[in-house]
Every structure is written in C-alpha cells, then in structure tokens.
Simulated assay, not measured.
Amino acid sequence: MRLLQALFFPPEQPGGVSSMIPYMQERFQSSRWDMEMFWLPKRIRNKGHEDIRFETFDWTEYGDSPTVQKYIQTYRDYLWWTKLRIQKPYDLIHAHHPIAGLAMKQVFPEVPLIQTIHSSYEKELILNGKIKADGPEHRFLGSLYRELELKSERMLTVSRSFADYLGAYVDHPERIAVTPNGFDEKRFKPVPHENDVPQLITVCRLVPAKGLDILLKACAELKKKGFDYVLHIIGDGPYRTELETLAKQLGIYNETIFYGYTLHPEEFMPFFDIFVLPSRAEAFGSVFAEAALSCLALVGTDVGGIAEQIEDGVNGLLVPPEDYMALGEALEKVITDPLYRYELARSAWDKAKSHYSLTHAVNELKKLYLQYSPVKE
C-alpha cells in the first residue's frame, strides 16, 4: 500500500507531528507498506497564483484580513509545490495540517484522504493576542473545519477534548475519531540520577498561550518560601524578551536558564526531575508524553489534552489555568517529597508506554489504513 504523509512544516520543526511522523517511516517500510513524507519547504514563498475556492464557504468575505491573505497565499504555494513535485500516484494520503489536506484533495481528488487536526491555529492566535475572538480571521479559520469534513474520508484528532471543540464547527461531530500521537519509545531512556537541587524543566514555544508568565510567578513564590530549585526553559519565540524581563522583576533570573530552541531536548530531559507547563490551552500536549517517557514528574494545567494524559495525584498533578498560587503549591509538593515525585513519575511512565508509544500508534493507524486498501482484481 502506497502511503503519503502530508505535513506542513518540515519534519525537524518542533511539535507533535515532528515527534511522530518521521519515526513512523521505518515502521512502515516493508513489502506491504511503502510510506513517504511531503511538506512545503520554507523557501517556497509567493509561487502559487491559482484561484482559490471552497465548496462550503466564500473565503473572500474575509479577504481584507492580512492573516487570511497570508493563509490563502500559503495554500496557493502548497498547491504549486505539490503539482510540481508529486508525479506518482498514492493509494492513501494522510494529511496533518488543513492546508496540506485541502491541497492534496484538490490535486488528487480520487485518492482517499485521512485528515488529522493536531491543534487549533485560531485558538492559539486568540490567546497570543494576534486576532480577536469571533473576528474575521477566527470565522475564516473555523470555516475550514467544515471544508475538511467535506473533503476527507476520515477526520481524526488527538484528544477527546479537542474533538469536542471541533464538533462545534462541523456537521457530523460524531464522525471525528480520536487517535493520540505516538512517540518512539527508543528515543526516551530514563536515567537514574540524584540532583541535590530539584531541576524543573519546560519545553515549548515562548508565546502567551503556554502560560510561562504563570510559571515564573509560581517559581517566585517558591523562592519566597525558601525552596531551592533551578528552572530550565527550552524553546524560543516572540515572548522571550518579556519573560526574561519578568524573571528579573520577580527576582528569579539567577534560578532560571533560557536555552533557546533545541532540536532534541529528549536527549537530556531524563536528567531533570519535574516537567511543568501551565498552558492556557492544549489540544494534546505532546511534550507531556515525552516527559513521561523520560520518567519525569508531571505538573500541568487542567485543560484540553493535558487533563486526558494526567490523572491528578496518580501520574502527575493538575492545577487550574491562570492560578500561579496553585501551581506553586503543586510544585512545592513534588520538590519537597522525592519519593512522591518518583511515584508520580513512574506512574506517568507506565501510562505513556502503554497509551502513547509509537508502537501502539502505528498499530492503530495500520488498522485504519487497511480500511482504504485498494482492491486487487
């Protein structure tokens, strides 16, 4: 069976898709399966000039927005690149971004399309202050879900909570299936270690939606109470300068290390003790599964896919979003009690191995793909 995994970002980009799809490829290389990947290179800009039309809505109603114009131009570029580069036919296409799925279906209308929605671009833009709720950009991006529902044979997403979110935008929410991301268990190797000072780590893009301002305030409370710790922030983004300034204002800059973007944080994540990320929204939260496979204690917010990965007090701790005092108290529990911290980490590791391993994800996808296997005469 000839499979195409259609991405938007190149595989080396951070995020859930890049954590899974490149590592799936070797699991599919056999006499029965032939899987390839495709994406839009960063250098491809303003190449496409095709007239864009959708069947379920008129995008030109929102065409005055620069954000919408940029999205449409990227769609044109993806179409242009697809037509230029893909010559041979495939039996099935699995797309991991709305632009990828819509472009593939336009170029190859007879090929079955499975579409996975990994996250909400519009929700992220709203939380990051880039667009307004119910504004033209929000309505445009929300309309794409119904277009994807029409064009794809199967719609998937990565958590039950995000499936519920998508349900408001489509005609048949009951048809959306949930398939969590999978992570190559061979990449994550817990390392026995003892840190005299508890080491906290977070890995994310530095944008307001990730709630790192709340994390810094929580850490300031820990310092006020006299607890020793080091906070390692791995990632980069437009919010970095503000976060560094906030850390200085709160008097915790010396306890905080800003690394910038790192390609493979899983290589040294096992040497830390506690993973913490107080996101304001999260479709799945791939980095929690990665931290669990590294056998770290997990502390997160009770939102989206995070709350589906963590059972509070069993394999991690959950706190309300925006509540830095509650976050500080949760961190205090795992900082002051190493045995409790280990018990949470071990339970998180057990769940991640059984629910979020790449082996499990690949087996589930193979079952799904075989439903669309071409009939041999």
Rank of each mutant, 00 (worst) to 15 (best):
E377R: 13
S18Y: 12
M269E: 00
E329N: 08
P374D: 00
H96W: 03
K70D: 01
Q115G: 06
R154Y: 09
V287T: 15
T359P: 05
M269V: 05
L327V: 00
L125E: 01
K210C: 03
S159L: 14
Y239Q: 06
D236I: 12
G101Q: 04
E147S: 14
P180M: 09
L4Y: 03
A292M: 14
A345N: 01
P173I: 04
T245G: 07
A289I: 05
E308Y: 15
S19M: 08
Y372N: 05
S354M: 09
R85N: 07
P338M: 07
A6K: 05
F268K: 13
W59L: 06
E343Y: 14
I306P: 04
D196P: 08
R346S: 06
I114Y: 02
H138C: 09
I126K: 03
L243T: 11
P10Q: 10
G15M: 08
Q87N: 12
V362P: 02
I114F: 01
V287M: 11
E124T: 09
P180C: 08
S31M: 10
A352K: 05
D273Y: 13
G305S: 05
L370K: 10
L216G: 03
S354K: 13
R240K: 15
P270K: 08
T60R: 15
D196R: 13
R32H: 15
F188Y: 15
I201C: 03
D77Q: 04
D213V: 00
H138V: 05
D302N: 15
Y259M: 05
W349T: 01
D171Q: 11
P136H: 12
G48Q: 04
E242G: 08
L370H: 12
Q87V: 12
T82Y: 13
A281Y: 15
M24I: 08
L368I: 15
I21S: 03
D323I: 12
E329Y: 02
Y75N: 01
I117G: 11
G63F: 12
H264P: 03
G251V: 04
N315F: 15
